[in-house]
Simulated assay, not measured.
Amino acid sequence: MEKVASADGTAIAYDRLGEGPAVVLVCGGSVDRMSNAPLAALLAENHTVYNYDRRGRGDSGDAPQYAIEREFEDLDAIFAVAGGSAHLYGTSSGAALALLATAAGRPVTKLALWEPPYILEGPRKRPPADTASIYRAFVAEGRRDKAAEYFMAEVVGLPAEFVAMAKESPWWPAQEAIAHTLAYDATVMGDYSIPAAASSVTVPTRVFTGGASEEWMKQGNQAVVDAIPGATAGVVPDQQHNVDAAALAPALKEFFA
């Protein structure tokens, strides 16, 4: 593990693996860089992979006030240690962050997105537009467990029995520890509609979707493809949102080649 200082002085931790063209990995909500560790190991067979902890989680530091621009600056710091530019991969809400950072002009050479969870108008209800404030209120009240529960049940839509089981699991304390970052991802997602900034992405982009994912995800991902000029779609057969790194890695290697 290494660390680099972001523009505001926050220490951003990352693992560097392998040799070859640089690839930066962005994790999603309620997890740290360990969620991308299996994928990083596979991509490191022919790339230099920078797998970093987003601010507020894992081994990275944080700041009192959050803004999406601070996360852009964190990426700037990682790009700098990567040599000035890199391919960029993001998963879930991390894919949304990667999209926004690329649209804002970060030095991305190719952009790969795994299931950014934008929701079209239709049968699946979007989370409340003020979801970030809901998380912040729970955390301010010292109810980190409630913030994590709200994310699982009301945003992800997991059944009540799964949430109850999760609270008794050995990994639940880790969920509470990074519960404050749920507001960060909610800020990135906004109202869960596809951002207008998507049309500003000019680098080669591929949006990957699981072949076994829910229809609302497939439709939303296709809409992202349509919104980004020149973007293409990739399907990873038999996969859902919690994708197997061994299934995804070959598709990413082909795109990044």
Results as ranks from 00 to 15, higher is better:
Lys3Met: 05
Ala7Gln: 05
Thr10Cys: 09
Ala11Gly: 04
Ile12His: 00
Tyr14Trp: 11
Asp15Met: 05
Leu17Asn: 05
Leu25Tyr: 00
Val26Arg: 00
Val26Met: 01
Gly29Met: 01
Ser30Asp: 04
Val31Arg: 00
Asp32Gln: 02
Asp32Val: 02
Arg33Gln: 07
Asn36Arg: 03
Asn36Pro: 00
Asn36Gly: 00
Asn36Val: 00
Asn36Asp: 05
Pro38Trp: 00
Ala41His: 04
Leu43Gly: 01
Ala44Phe: 08
Val49Thr: 04
Asn51Arg: 02
Asp53Thr: 07
Arg55Lys: 02
Asp59Arg: 07
Ser60Asp: 04
Ser60Met: 02
Ser60Ala: 03
Gly61Ala: 05
Pro64Leu: 10
Pro64Asn: 07
Ile68Met: 12
Phe72Trp: 08
Asp74Thr: 04
Asp74Gly: 01
Asp76Lys: 14
Ala80Tyr: 12
Val81Ser: 12
Ser85Thr: 09
Ala86Glu: 11
Ala86Tyr: 10
His87Leu: 09
His87Gly: 10
His87Asn: 13
Leu88Thr: 07
Tyr89Ala: 06
Tyr89Phe: 15
Gly94Ile: 07
Leu97Arg: 08
Leu99Gly: 05
Leu99Arg: 02
Leu100Gly: 04
Ala103Met: 06
Ala104Lys: 08
Ala104Gly: 03
Ala104Thr: 02
Lys110Asp: 03
Lys110Ile: 04
Glu115Gly: 01
Tyr118Leu: 03
Leu120Gln: 05
Arg124Tyr: 05
Lys125Pro: 03
Pro127Trp: 07
Pro128Thr: 15
Thr131Lys: 08
Ala132His: 12
Ser133Lys: 15
Tyr135Asp: 11
Tyr135Cys: 12
Ala137Arg: 14
Arg144Tyr: 04
Asp145Trp: 03
Asp145Glu: 12
Ala148Pro: 02
Ala148Thr: 04
Ala148Glu: 01
Tyr150Ala: 01
Tyr150Ser: 03
Glu154Asp: 15
Val155Ala: 05
Val155His: 06
Leu158Ala: 10
Val163Arg: 07
Val163Leu: 10
Met165Glu: 15
Met165Val: 13
Ser169Val: 13
Ser169Asp: 15
Pro170Val: 09
Trp171Leu: 12
Ala174Val: 11
Ala177Gly: 10
Ile178Met: 14
His180Gln: 12
Tyr184Ala: 09
Asp185Ile: 13
Thr187Asp: 12
Val188Thr: 11
Asp191Trp: 11
Ser193Gln: 13
Ser193Met: 12
Ala196Met: 10
Thr202Leu: 09
Val207Phe: 01
Glu214Ala: 14
Trp216His: 06
Trp216Gly: 02
Trp216Met: 05
Met217Leu: 14
Lys218Tyr: 07
Lys218Leu: 14
Lys218Glu: 11
Gln219Cys: 11
Gly220Val: 12
Gln222Val: 07
Ala223Met: 10
Val224Met: 09
Asp226Met: 08
Ala227Leu: 12
Pro229Val: 08
Gly230Met: 05
Gly234Arg: 09
Val235Pro: 03
Val236Ala: 06
Pro237Thr: 10
Asp238Asn: 14
Gln239Ile: 10
His241Tyr: 11
His241Pro: 02
His241Gln: 11
His241Asn: 09
Val243Glu: 03
Ala246Leu: 14
Ala247Ile: 12
Pro250His: 12
Pro250Gln: 14
Lys253Leu: 15
Phe256Ser: 06
Ala257Arg: 15
